[in-house]
Design a protein around this nucleic acid. Structure first.
Lengths: 125, 125, 125, 125
DNA sequence: GTGGTCTAGACCACC
DNA sequence: GTGGTCTAGACCACG
Protein backbone atom coordinates (compact mmCIF):
# COMPACT_ATOMS: atom_id res chain seq x y z
CA UNK A 1 0.00 0.00 0.00
CA UNK A 2 0.95 3.63 -0.20
CA UNK A 3 2.58 4.93 2.95
CA UNK A 4 2.58 8.62 3.77
CA UNK A 5 5.53 10.08 5.64
CA UNK A 6 4.07 12.92 7.64
CA UNK A 7 7.49 14.11 8.65
CA UNK A 8 8.31 14.63 4.99
CA UNK A 9 8.10 18.35 4.33
CA UNK A 10 6.49 17.86 0.93
CA UNK A 11 2.69 18.03 0.69
CA UNK A 12 0.83 14.76 0.93
CA UNK A 13 -0.57 14.92 -2.57
CA UNK A 14 2.96 15.05 -3.97
CA UNK A 15 3.90 11.93 -2.07
CA UNK A 16 0.82 10.18 -3.44
CA UNK A 17 1.74 11.26 -6.97
CA UNK A 18 5.28 10.02 -6.60
CA UNK A 19 4.25 6.60 -5.32
CA UNK A 20 1.83 6.08 -8.22
CA UNK A 21 4.44 7.25 -10.72
CA UNK A 22 6.82 4.64 -9.39
CA UNK A 23 4.23 1.89 -9.48
CA UNK A 24 3.23 2.76 -13.04
CA UNK A 25 6.77 3.15 -14.36
CA UNK A 26 8.13 -0.04 -12.86
CA UNK A 27 5.13 -2.00 -14.06
CA UNK A 28 3.41 -2.84 -10.78
CA UNK A 29 0.33 -1.15 -12.18
CA UNK A 30 -0.28 -2.45 -15.71
CA UNK A 31 -1.42 -0.31 -18.63
CA UNK A 32 -5.22 0.07 -18.84
CA UNK A 33 -5.73 -1.43 -15.41
CA UNK A 34 -8.08 0.52 -13.13
CA UNK A 35 -6.79 2.92 -10.52
CA UNK A 36 -8.44 2.72 -7.08
CA UNK A 37 -11.44 5.01 -6.74
CA UNK A 38 -10.77 8.45 -5.28
CA UNK A 39 -13.21 8.04 -2.43
CA UNK A 40 -12.17 4.46 -1.64
CA UNK A 41 -8.49 5.29 -1.56
CA UNK A 42 -9.10 8.40 0.53
CA UNK A 43 -11.00 6.38 3.09
CA UNK A 44 -8.43 3.61 3.13
CA UNK A 45 -5.60 6.09 3.68
CA UNK A 46 -7.56 8.30 6.07
CA UNK A 47 -6.98 11.28 3.83
CA UNK A 48 -9.21 14.03 2.54
CA UNK A 49 -10.71 13.01 -0.85
CA UNK A 50 -9.58 16.41 -2.14
CA UNK A 51 -6.00 15.35 -1.60
CA UNK A 52 -6.37 12.16 -3.67
CA UNK A 53 -8.35 14.04 -6.27
CA UNK A 54 -5.56 16.55 -6.69
CA UNK A 55 -3.00 13.78 -7.07
CA UNK A 56 -5.08 12.05 -9.74
CA UNK A 57 -5.57 15.35 -11.61
CA UNK A 58 -1.84 15.88 -11.67
CA UNK A 59 -1.22 12.29 -12.78
CA UNK A 60 -3.70 12.81 -15.61
CA UNK A 61 -2.15 16.15 -16.59
CA UNK A 62 1.29 14.56 -16.83
CA UNK A 63 0.09 11.58 -18.84
CA UNK A 64 0.32 8.79 -16.29
CA UNK A 65 -3.41 8.01 -16.16
CA UNK A 66 -6.57 8.77 -18.13
CA UNK A 67 -10.11 9.16 -16.87
CA UNK A 68 -13.40 7.90 -18.28
CA UNK A 69 -16.36 9.76 -16.84
CA UNK A 70 -18.55 7.50 -14.78
CA UNK A 71 -16.12 4.61 -15.02
CA UNK A 72 -12.98 5.75 -13.22
CA UNK A 73 -9.29 6.31 -13.90
CA UNK A 74 -6.94 3.97 -15.77
CA UNK A 75 -3.22 3.58 -16.25
CA UNK A 76 -1.71 4.90 -19.50
CA UNK A 77 0.76 3.06 -21.70
CA UNK A 78 4.19 3.61 -20.24
CA UNK A 79 6.26 4.11 -23.37
CA UNK A 80 5.56 7.82 -23.73
CA UNK A 81 5.42 8.36 -19.99
CA UNK A 82 8.85 6.88 -19.37
CA UNK A 83 10.52 9.36 -21.68
CA UNK A 84 8.88 12.26 -19.83
CA UNK A 85 10.00 10.90 -16.47
CA UNK A 86 13.48 10.49 -17.83
CA UNK A 87 13.60 14.14 -18.83
CA UNK A 88 12.27 15.21 -15.44
CA UNK A 89 14.91 13.19 -13.63
CA UNK A 90 17.61 14.52 -15.92
CA UNK A 91 16.60 18.06 -14.94
CA UNK A 92 16.71 17.22 -11.26
CA UNK A 93 20.05 15.45 -11.59
CA UNK A 94 21.39 18.46 -13.47
CA UNK A 95 20.40 20.64 -10.52
CA UNK A 96 22.36 18.45 -8.11
CA UNK A 97 25.40 18.31 -10.34
CA UNK A 98 25.36 22.07 -10.88
CA UNK A 99 25.28 22.68 -7.16
CA UNK A 100 28.17 20.31 -6.58
CA UNK A 101 30.30 21.91 -9.27
CA UNK A 102 29.47 25.39 -7.99
CA UNK A 103 30.51 24.25 -4.52
CA UNK A 104 33.91 23.43 -5.90
CA UNK A 105 33.61 19.64 -5.86
CA UNK A 106 35.82 18.04 -8.50
CA UNK A 107 34.45 15.90 -11.32
CA UNK A 108 36.39 12.93 -9.96
CA UNK A 109 34.87 13.36 -6.52
CA UNK A 110 31.45 13.78 -8.00
CA UNK A 111 31.63 10.55 -9.97
CA UNK A 112 32.71 8.70 -6.86
CA UNK A 113 29.72 10.10 -5.01
CA UNK A 114 27.38 8.94 -7.76
CA UNK A 115 28.88 5.45 -7.69
CA UNK A 116 28.25 5.29 -3.97
CA UNK A 117 24.68 6.48 -4.45
CA UNK A 118 23.97 3.85 -7.07
CA UNK A 119 25.46 1.09 -4.96
CA UNK A 120 23.47 2.24 -1.99
CA UNK A 121 20.29 2.71 -4.03
CA UNK A 122 20.43 -0.78 -5.50
CA UNK A 123 20.40 -2.28 -2.03
CA UNK A 124 17.16 -0.52 -1.16
CA UNK A 125 15.19 -2.00 -4.02
CA UNK B 1 25.03 40.75 -7.27
CA UNK B 2 22.43 38.30 -6.05
CA UNK B 3 19.48 37.88 -8.35
CA UNK B 4 16.14 36.63 -7.10
CA UNK B 5 14.02 34.49 -9.38
CA UNK B 6 10.46 35.33 -8.46
CA UNK B 7 9.15 32.50 -10.62
CA UNK B 8 11.08 30.07 -8.44
CA UNK B 9 8.62 28.45 -6.06
CA UNK B 10 11.15 28.36 -3.26
CA UNK B 11 11.02 31.19 -0.72
CA UNK B 12 13.24 34.17 -1.32
CA UNK B 13 15.30 33.61 1.82
CA UNK B 14 16.25 30.14 0.59
CA UNK B 15 17.47 31.55 -2.68
CA UNK B 16 19.55 34.10 -0.80
CA UNK B 17 21.00 31.34 1.38
CA UNK B 18 21.90 29.22 -1.63
CA UNK B 19 23.65 32.04 -3.43
CA UNK B 20 25.78 32.89 -0.42
CA UNK B 21 26.62 29.23 0.17
CA UNK B 22 27.93 29.04 -3.37
CA UNK B 23 29.94 32.23 -3.04
CA UNK B 24 31.46 31.07 0.22
CA UNK B 25 32.22 27.52 -0.90
CA UNK B 26 33.81 28.47 -4.18
CA UNK B 27 35.89 31.15 -2.51
CA UNK B 28 34.36 34.32 -3.97
CA UNK B 29 33.78 35.43 -0.39
CA UNK B 30 36.95 34.91 1.58
CA UNK B 31 37.11 33.66 5.18
CA UNK B 32 36.71 36.45 7.76
CA UNK B 33 35.67 38.94 5.11
CA UNK B 34 32.59 40.98 5.99
CA UNK B 35 29.16 40.05 4.66
CA UNK B 36 27.01 42.96 3.44
CA UNK B 37 24.97 44.48 6.25
CA UNK B 38 21.45 43.18 6.68
CA UNK B 39 19.82 46.52 6.08
CA UNK B 40 22.15 47.52 3.28
CA UNK B 41 21.60 44.34 1.33
CA UNK B 42 17.86 44.48 1.94
CA UNK B 43 17.72 47.98 0.50
CA UNK B 44 19.92 47.07 -2.44
CA UNK B 45 17.78 44.05 -3.30
CA UNK B 46 14.50 45.83 -2.53
CA UNK B 47 13.67 43.22 0.07
CA UNK B 48 12.51 43.44 3.65
CA UNK B 49 15.39 43.37 6.16
CA UNK B 50 13.64 40.49 7.93
CA UNK B 51 14.03 38.32 4.85
CA UNK B 52 17.77 38.92 4.70
CA UNK B 53 17.98 38.51 8.46
CA UNK B 54 16.40 35.11 8.22
CA UNK B 55 18.82 34.01 5.52
CA UNK B 56 21.80 35.19 7.58
CA UNK B 57 20.46 33.42 10.65
CA UNK B 58 20.28 30.15 8.75
CA UNK B 59 23.75 30.68 7.32
CA UNK B 60 25.03 31.22 10.85
CA UNK B 61 23.20 28.17 12.18
CA UNK B 62 24.74 25.98 9.51
CA UNK B 63 28.24 27.30 10.07
CA UNK B 64 28.77 29.43 6.97
CA UNK B 65 29.05 32.77 8.75
CA UNK B 66 29.51 34.12 12.24
CA UNK B 67 28.08 37.30 13.66
CA UNK B 68 29.41 39.96 15.98
CA UNK B 69 26.58 42.01 17.41
CA UNK B 70 26.96 45.63 16.49
CA UNK B 71 29.74 44.91 14.01
CA UNK B 72 28.23 42.67 11.37
CA UNK B 73 28.47 39.18 9.95
CA UNK B 74 31.61 37.51 8.65
CA UNK B 75 32.51 34.49 6.57
CA UNK B 76 33.65 31.34 8.40
CA UNK B 77 36.62 29.21 7.45
CA UNK B 78 35.49 26.86 4.74
CA UNK B 79 37.29 23.68 5.74
CA UNK B 80 34.61 22.30 8.03
CA UNK B 81 31.79 23.80 6.02
CA UNK B 82 32.84 22.05 2.83
CA UNK B 83 32.53 18.63 4.43
CA UNK B 84 29.02 19.44 5.60
CA UNK B 85 28.01 20.65 2.16
CA UNK B 86 29.42 17.49 0.66
CA UNK B 87 27.27 15.35 2.92
CA UNK B 88 24.21 17.45 2.09
CA UNK B 89 24.80 17.03 -1.62
CA UNK B 90 25.37 13.31 -1.22
CA UNK B 91 21.96 13.03 0.42
CA UNK B 92 20.30 14.98 -2.38
CA UNK B 93 22.08 12.98 -5.05
CA UNK B 94 20.98 9.79 -3.33
CA UNK B 95 17.39 10.97 -3.57
CA UNK B 96 17.72 11.52 -7.33
CA UNK B 97 19.38 8.19 -7.90
CA UNK B 98 16.79 6.34 -5.82
CA UNK B 99 13.97 7.88 -7.84
CA UNK B 100 15.64 6.92 -11.09
CA UNK B 101 16.18 3.33 -10.01
CA UNK B 102 12.63 3.07 -8.72
CA UNK B 103 11.39 4.40 -12.06
CA UNK B 104 13.06 1.44 -13.72
CA UNK B 105 15.98 3.31 -15.29
CA UNK B 106 18.99 1.03 -15.75
CA UNK B 107 22.33 1.69 -14.08
CA UNK B 108 23.91 2.06 -17.54
CA UNK B 109 21.34 4.66 -18.53
CA UNK B 110 21.78 6.47 -15.26
CA UNK B 111 25.52 6.77 -15.62
CA UNK B 112 25.07 8.17 -19.11
CA UNK B 113 22.68 10.76 -17.73
CA UNK B 114 25.19 11.79 -15.09
CA UNK B 115 27.93 12.14 -17.70
CA UNK B 116 25.69 14.43 -19.71
CA UNK B 117 24.87 16.47 -16.61
CA UNK B 118 28.52 16.94 -15.73
CA UNK B 119 29.41 17.94 -19.28
CA UNK B 120 26.53 20.35 -19.35
CA UNK B 121 27.28 21.67 -15.88
CA UNK B 122 30.91 22.38 -16.67
CA UNK B 123 29.90 24.64 -19.54
CA UNK B 124 27.81 26.82 -17.25
CA UNK B 125 30.65 27.66 -14.92
CA UNK C 1 -1.01 27.47 30.48
CA UNK C 2 2.27 28.98 29.35
CA UNK C 3 3.28 32.08 31.23
CA UNK C 4 5.68 34.61 29.79
CA UNK C 5 8.06 36.43 32.12
CA UNK C 6 8.53 39.83 30.56
CA UNK C 7 11.29 40.64 33.02
CA UNK C 8 13.26 37.72 31.64
CA UNK C 9 15.90 39.09 29.30
CA UNK C 10 15.58 36.15 26.94
CA UNK C 11 13.32 36.58 23.91
CA UNK C 12 9.74 35.47 24.24
CA UNK C 13 10.04 32.77 21.60
CA UNK C 14 12.83 31.12 23.59
CA UNK C 15 10.65 31.02 26.67
CA UNK C 16 7.87 29.45 24.66
CA UNK C 17 10.30 26.86 23.29
CA UNK C 18 11.57 25.99 26.73
CA UNK C 19 8.11 25.53 28.18
CA UNK C 20 7.06 23.20 25.40
CA UNK C 21 10.31 21.24 25.68
CA UNK C 22 9.56 20.65 29.34
CA UNK C 23 5.99 19.62 28.69
CA UNK C 24 7.05 17.22 25.95
CA UNK C 25 9.97 15.70 27.85
CA UNK C 26 8.11 15.13 31.09
CA UNK C 27 5.17 13.64 29.24
CA UNK C 28 2.49 16.27 29.81
CA UNK C 29 2.13 16.43 26.04
CA UNK C 30 1.89 12.90 24.68
CA UNK C 31 3.51 11.70 21.45
CA UNK C 32 1.40 12.37 18.35
CA UNK C 33 -1.00 14.59 20.27
CA UNK C 34 -1.79 17.89 18.60
CA UNK C 35 -0.02 21.09 19.57
CA UNK C 36 -2.22 24.19 19.91
CA UNK C 37 -2.61 25.99 16.59
CA UNK C 38 -0.20 28.85 15.91
CA UNK C 39 -2.91 31.44 15.60
CA UNK C 40 -4.98 30.08 18.47
CA UNK C 41 -2.08 30.06 20.89
CA UNK C 42 -0.95 33.49 19.75
CA UNK C 43 -4.38 34.92 20.46
CA UNK C 44 -4.65 33.16 23.80
CA UNK C 45 -1.25 34.47 24.90
CA UNK C 46 -1.77 37.90 23.35
CA UNK C 47 1.31 37.41 21.21
CA UNK C 48 1.97 37.85 17.54
CA UNK C 49 1.48 34.66 15.51
CA UNK C 50 4.98 35.13 14.11
CA UNK C 51 6.46 34.75 17.57
CA UNK C 52 4.69 31.43 18.14
CA UNK C 53 5.53 30.38 14.59
CA UNK C 54 9.19 30.93 15.26
CA UNK C 55 9.07 28.87 18.43
CA UNK C 56 7.30 26.02 16.64
CA UNK C 57 9.82 26.14 13.81
CA UNK C 58 12.66 25.74 16.25
CA UNK C 59 10.86 22.92 18.03
CA UNK C 60 10.44 21.19 14.69
CA UNK C 61 14.07 21.76 13.72
CA UNK C 62 15.27 20.20 16.95
CA UNK C 63 12.98 17.20 16.67
CA UNK C 64 10.41 17.93 19.35
CA UNK C 65 7.42 18.29 17.02
CA UNK C 66 6.49 17.57 13.41
CA UNK C 67 4.17 19.53 11.21
CA UNK C 68 1.58 18.61 8.62
CA UNK C 69 0.77 21.60 6.47
CA UNK C 70 -2.86 22.45 6.68
CA UNK C 71 -3.42 20.13 9.61
CA UNK C 72 -1.24 21.39 12.41
CA UNK C 73 1.77 20.45 14.51
CA UNK C 74 2.15 17.27 16.54
CA UNK C 75 4.41 15.98 19.30
CA UNK C 76 7.25 13.63 18.29
CA UNK C 77 8.16 10.42 20.05
CA UNK C 78 10.31 11.32 23.01
CA UNK C 79 12.86 8.52 22.93
CA UNK C 80 15.31 10.18 20.58
CA UNK C 81 14.51 13.64 21.83
CA UNK C 82 15.38 12.79 25.41
CA UNK C 83 18.90 11.76 24.48
CA UNK C 84 19.43 15.06 22.64
CA UNK C 85 18.17 17.04 25.62
CA UNK C 86 20.47 15.11 27.89
CA UNK C 87 23.46 16.04 25.79
CA UNK C 88 22.36 19.68 25.73
CA UNK C 89 22.06 19.76 29.50
CA UNK C 90 25.41 18.05 29.90
CA UNK C 91 26.99 20.84 27.85
CA UNK C 92 25.32 23.52 29.93
CA UNK C 93 26.27 21.82 33.18
CA UNK C 94 29.84 21.55 31.94
CA UNK C 95 29.86 25.32 31.41
CA UNK C 96 28.75 25.92 35.01
CA UNK C 97 31.26 23.51 36.44
CA UNK C 98 34.10 24.96 34.38
CA UNK C 99 33.30 28.45 35.64
CA UNK C 100 33.24 27.26 39.22
CA UNK C 101 36.56 25.48 38.92
CA UNK C 102 38.13 28.47 37.20
CA UNK C 103 36.85 30.68 40.01
CA UNK C 104 38.85 28.56 42.43
CA UNK C 105 35.96 26.72 44.03
CA UNK C 106 37.05 23.33 45.35
CA UNK C 107 35.58 20.07 44.10
CA UNK C 108 34.25 19.41 47.60
CA UNK C 109 32.52 22.76 47.71
CA UNK C 110 31.11 22.24 44.25
CA UNK C 111 29.57 18.90 45.10
CA UNK C 112 27.94 20.42 48.15
CA UNK C 113 26.47 23.15 45.98
CA UNK C 114 25.05 20.59 43.58
CA UNK C 115 23.49 18.67 46.47
CA UNK C 116 21.81 21.82 47.66
CA UNK C 117 20.56 22.56 44.15
CA UNK C 118 19.06 19.11 43.76
CA UNK C 119 17.38 19.28 47.14
CA UNK C 120 16.02 22.70 46.34
CA UNK C 121 14.99 21.67 42.82
CA UNK C 122 13.06 18.64 43.99
CA UNK C 123 10.91 20.84 46.20
CA UNK C 124 9.82 22.97 43.24
CA UNK C 125 8.41 20.10 41.25
CA UNK D 1 46.24 37.46 27.44
CA UNK D 2 42.50 37.67 27.10
CA UNK D 3 41.13 35.93 24.05
CA UNK D 4 37.78 36.86 22.58
CA UNK D 5 35.71 34.19 20.93
CA UNK D 6 33.79 36.03 18.23
CA UNK D 7 31.66 33.01 17.55
CA UNK D 8 30.43 33.13 21.12
CA UNK D 9 26.94 34.60 21.02
CA UNK D 10 27.48 36.62 24.18
CA UNK D 11 28.55 40.26 23.83
CA UNK D 12 32.26 40.94 23.92
CA UNK D 13 32.12 43.00 27.09
CA UNK D 14 30.66 40.04 28.94
CA UNK D 15 33.51 37.84 27.82
CA UNK D 16 35.99 40.45 29.02
CA UNK D 17 34.23 40.64 32.37
CA UNK D 18 34.25 36.88 32.76
CA UNK D 19 37.93 36.55 32.01
CA UNK D 20 38.86 39.21 34.56
CA UNK D 21 36.57 37.66 37.16
CA UNK D 22 38.39 34.37 36.70
CA UNK D 23 41.81 35.96 36.92
CA UNK D 24 40.87 37.87 40.05
CA UNK D 25 39.15 34.96 41.79
CA UNK D 26 41.86 32.42 41.12
CA UNK D 27 44.54 34.84 42.21
CA UNK D 28 46.33 35.54 38.94
CA UNK D 29 45.59 39.20 39.53
CA UNK D 30 46.54 40.07 43.11
CA UNK D 31 44.57 42.39 45.38
CA UNK D 32 45.45 46.07 44.94
CA UNK D 33 47.47 45.38 41.82
CA UNK D 34 46.72 47.70 38.89
CA UNK D 35 44.38 46.74 36.10
CA UNK D 36 45.56 47.52 32.55
CA UNK D 37 44.46 50.95 31.36
CA UNK D 38 41.22 51.08 29.39
CA UNK D 39 42.80 52.63 26.32
CA UNK D 40 45.88 50.42 26.41
CA UNK D 41 43.90 47.23 26.72
CA UNK D 42 41.46 48.32 24.01
CA UNK D 43 44.33 48.96 21.63
CA UNK D 44 46.06 45.71 22.48
CA UNK D 45 42.87 43.72 21.92
CA UNK D 46 41.76 45.75 18.87
CA UNK D 47 38.49 46.57 20.59
CA UNK D 48 36.52 49.73 21.00
CA UNK D 49 37.52 51.49 24.27
CA UNK D 50 33.82 51.77 25.05
CA UNK D 51 33.67 48.00 25.26
CA UNK D 52 36.49 47.80 27.79
CA UNK D 53 35.07 50.73 29.68
CA UNK D 54 31.75 49.00 30.03
CA UNK D 55 33.41 45.84 31.29
CA UNK D 56 35.38 47.78 33.92
CA UNK D 57 32.24 49.61 35.02
CA UNK D 58 30.49 46.32 35.53
CA UNK D 59 33.49 44.87 37.37
CA UNK D 60 33.47 47.89 39.66
CA UNK D 61 29.71 47.68 40.23
CA UNK D 62 30.00 44.05 41.25
CA UNK D 63 32.92 44.65 43.57
CA UNK D 64 35.78 43.08 41.67
CA UNK D 65 37.78 46.28 41.15
CA UNK D 66 37.88 49.84 42.43
CA UNK D 67 38.86 53.00 40.62
CA UNK D 68 40.95 55.95 41.73
CA UNK D 69 40.43 58.99 39.53
CA UNK D 70 43.52 59.91 37.65
CA UNK D 71 45.37 56.80 38.76
CA UNK D 72 43.45 53.88 37.28
CA UNK D 73 41.63 50.77 38.39
CA UNK D 74 42.77 48.24 40.98
CA UNK D 75 41.84 44.76 42.08
CA UNK D 76 39.68 44.42 45.22
CA UNK D 77 40.29 42.00 48.05
CA UNK D 78 38.82 38.70 47.03
CA UNK D 79 37.25 37.58 50.29
CA UNK D 80 33.96 39.39 49.84
CA UNK D 81 34.01 38.97 46.09
CA UNK D 82 34.35 35.21 46.26
CA UNK D 83 31.18 34.88 48.29
CA UNK D 84 29.25 36.90 45.68
CA UNK D 85 30.60 34.78 42.86
CA UNK D 86 29.68 31.68 44.75
CA UNK D 87 26.09 32.84 45.07
CA UNK D 88 25.96 33.72 41.38
CA UNK D 89 27.25 30.29 40.40
CA UNK D 90 24.82 28.63 42.76
CA UNK D 91 21.97 30.44 41.00
CA UNK D 92 23.19 29.31 37.59
CA UNK D 93 23.73 25.76 38.76
CA UNK D 94 20.25 25.78 40.20
CA UNK D 95 18.89 26.74 36.77
CA UNK D 96 20.65 23.77 35.17
CA UNK D 97 19.50 21.34 37.80
CA UNK D 98 15.92 22.58 37.61
CA UNK D 99 15.87 22.09 33.86
CA UNK D 100 17.24 18.58 34.19
CA UNK D 101 14.69 17.60 36.81
CA UNK D 102 11.86 19.13 34.79
CA UNK D 103 13.06 17.13 31.79
CA UNK D 104 12.53 14.00 33.81
CA UNK D 105 16.19 13.17 34.43
CA UNK D 106 16.63 11.16 37.62
CA UNK D 107 18.72 12.38 40.58
CA UNK D 108 21.05 9.41 40.07
CA UNK D 109 21.59 10.27 36.42
CA UNK D 110 22.11 13.89 37.29
CA UNK D 111 24.81 13.17 39.84
CA UNK D 112 26.60 11.00 37.31
CA UNK D 113 26.50 13.82 34.83
CA UNK D 114 27.99 16.23 37.37
CA UNK D 115 30.78 13.77 38.17
CA UNK D 116 31.64 13.57 34.50
CA UNK D 117 31.62 17.35 34.21
CA UNK D 118 33.96 17.77 37.13
CA UNK D 119 36.35 15.15 35.82
CA UNK D 120 36.31 16.73 32.42
CA UNK D 121 36.62 20.25 33.84
CA UNK D 122 39.66 19.40 35.93
CA UNK D 123 41.53 18.31 32.85
CA UNK D 124 41.05 21.66 31.18
CA UNK D 125 42.69 23.65 33.94
C1' DG E 1 -9.37 25.73 9.07
C1' DT E 2 -3.93 25.00 9.14
C1' DG E 3 1.11 26.47 8.73
C1' DG E 4 4.72 29.20 5.66
C1' DT E 5 6.34 33.38 3.83
C1' DC E 6 6.78 38.21 3.26
C1' DT E 7 6.43 43.33 4.08
C1' DA E 8 6.45 47.42 6.94
C1' DG E 9 7.93 49.47 10.70
C1' DA E 10 9.18 49.63 15.57
C1' DC E 11 12.40 49.12 19.67
C1' DC E 12 16.40 47.16 21.89
C1' DA E 13 21.35 45.94 22.92
C1' DC E 14 25.85 46.33 21.30
C1' DC E 15 29.98 48.63 19.29
C1' DG F 1 26.33 52.25 12.59
C1' DT F 2 25.32 46.93 13.46
C1' DG F 3 22.28 42.66 14.30
C1' DG F 4 18.14 40.69 17.25
C1' DT F 5 13.44 40.72 18.46
C1' DC F 6 8.69 41.81 18.13
C1' DT F 7 4.12 43.44 16.29
C1' DA F 8 0.65 44.06 12.72
C1' DG F 9 -1.25 42.55 8.87
C1' DA F 10 -1.12 40.51 4.32
C1' DC F 11 -1.01 36.55 0.88
C1' DC F 12 -0.20 31.79 -0.36
C1' DA F 13 -0.44 26.61 -0.44
C1' DC F 14 -2.47 22.77 1.74
C1' DG F 15 -6.29 19.76 3.57
Amino acid sequence: MILIDYKDRRPIYEQVIEKFQQMILCGVLEPDSAMPSVRGLAMEMSLNPNTIQRAYQELERTGYIYTIKGKGSFVCNTASVAEGKRRELQRELQGCVDKALLAGISVESLKDMVEQCIECGLKKI
